[in-house]
Amino acid sequence: MSYAYLFKYIIIGDTGVGKSCLLLQFTDKRFQPVHDLTIGVEFGARMITIDNKPIKLQIWDTAGQESFRSITRSYYRGAAGALLVYDITRRETFNHLASWLEDARQHANANMTIMLVGNKCDLAHRRAVSTEEGEQFAKEHGLLFMECSAKTAQNVEEAFIKTAATIYKKIQDGVFDVSNESFGIKVGYGGIQGNAAGVGTSTSQGGGCCG
């Protein structure tokens, strides 16, 4: 399917916070409590639309365990967006955010858009991290923030799309050189140049795109 842009996403965070479930909920719209744990990396993809432009998200779902950090680091390269996930019912997964962030800052490009996701918000009765704390952390570190539930699908769609919208805005603002793929963005043929079969044949109206 043709797309205007392809964004590479990476999902990171401690083991068991629900990274694979978030991905599955977003790509397949289902919750699967029983699945094999992730070793290395798994891939998912979905098309979304922003500003009437078809955008393909290619999502890398990584293994969370500490031991695999050195390999996970090699996946950051060329990611345009990241979902940094913690589990609101397990305090330690929130405490580890700083070290994840450090990895991301060190191994991803500086303009990567990071969405902090507090997952499992359906388990409010077992909450160990307050919404305010999450908000505060995000604010301090310049991250987007959202609490979600991969189980009920609450805010899952929003978390992925809001991240994409932010990346898209950065493109519009000329933050990225989209021809440089190290920013995790690929320009497709659908809708931007309008030179291929598929969506839209007119050039984009927003000024300053097609950088």
């Binding site: 068991g16 029983v34 744990l37």
Partner: peptide
Amino acid sequence: GLIDKDVVRTDRSFSYYN
């Protein structure tokens, strides 16, 4: 905690563990 989380994510589609 880790083992507890992982054993329920081990070959669950295999009848021996489902």
